[in-house]
Amino acid sequence: MFQYIVRRLIWAVIMTLLVISTVFVIFFVLPGGSGRNIEGAGKCSSPIAIMMAGRNPRPALVCNIVKRLGLDKPVYVQYGRYVGNLLQGDMGYSYHSSEPVRDAIFRRLPATASLAIGASFIWLVFGVAIGIVSALRRRSFMDRASMFFALVGVSLPTFFLGLVLVFLFDGRLNIYNVASYQPITSDPVAWLKSMWLPWIVLAYVSMAVYARMVRGNLLEVMGEDYIRTARAKGLREKSVTRHALRSALTPVVTMYGLDLGILLGGAVITESIFNIPGIGSLAVDAISNQDLPTILGTTLFAGVFVIIANLVVDIAYASLDPRVRYS
C-alpha cells in the first residue's frame, strides 16, 4: 500500500509537470512569430507581449513586457523562469486588475468551492439513493419514473436548465435573486439563499448520470456469481444487498472524486448564469478581456485540481479494492 501511494504521488508530480509544460507550450511557444504587429516596436513585436499589453498598447510597453518576461531570451531560459516563478507561487499579475493572479484565484475559490461541494453533495446523495431504489425495485413505477427523470437530466444542457429556472424563480415567482452571492463567512443565510438554485441546476445533470450508473452497476453486480454464492449460503436478502452495494458503489467513489476535482477548477456555465464570482467566471472574464496571465493561472489551477483529485481517488480506490492494494 505504501509503495502504491508513493507510486501514485510520483505519477501526480509527473502529471503536474506535464500540465505546466503543455500550458507553457500552448501559451508561449506556439504563438511564435505570428500575430499583430505594433508599429515601431521592432524587435519587441512578440505576439505574447502584444496580447499581454492589452488593446492599442504603446510600443514601449510592449518592449517592457518582452524584457520583463524574457521573451527575447531562448525558449529554455523562458521555461526555466516560468517554472521557477510558479514554484514560488507566482502566476504573474492580471493585466486587467493588476492584482496578482494567485490572489484573484484564491479570493474566488470559496465561491467555486461552495457551489461545487454543495451541488456534488446533493447529486451524490440523491443520485445514489435513486439508483439503488430503482435497481432494487426494478420495473416498478418508481424505477420507471426516476429513470425517465434521469433521461431528461442527461439530455438537458445545464445552461438551458439554468436559464429556464432563473426565468421561473427569479423572473416569475420571485423567490430567488440572481447575483446575490454572499460568502458563507459574512452571512450564512444569505449564502444559502443564493446557492440553492445553482446547486440544483449543477446537481441535476450529474444526479441523473449517477442514478443511471448506480442502477446499472447494481443490476450487473446482482447477476454476479458471488451474489448467487451469498444467497446459496443462506444470507438474508439484506446482507446480499450489502454485498452487492459494496461492489456497485466502489466505482462511484472514483467518479465522484474526479467530478469534484473538475468542478473545483470552476463551473463555467453555472457561475456565469448565476453571476457567482468563482474561478469559472474569472476564467470567462479573463478570456473576454484577453487577460493572458489570468487565463494561464486559471487553466493551471484547474489542471492541478484534477491531478489532486486523481491522486485522492486512486488512494481511496486502493483502500476499497484489495485487488488493487495488493498488486
Binding site: E224, D225, Y226, R228, T229, A230, A232, K233, G234, L235, H243, R246, S247, T250, L320, D321, P322, R323
Partner: peptide
C-alpha cells in the same frame, strides 16, 4: 447453506473479491 449446500463452476467468480 444449512441442510442443502451448493458449490459452483467458477470459483474465480464465486467469492466476493472485496
Amino acid at each position: 447453506g444449512k441442510e442443502l449446500a451448493m458449490i459452483f463452476q467458477d470459483p474465480f467468480a464465486c467469492l466476493h473479491p472485496f
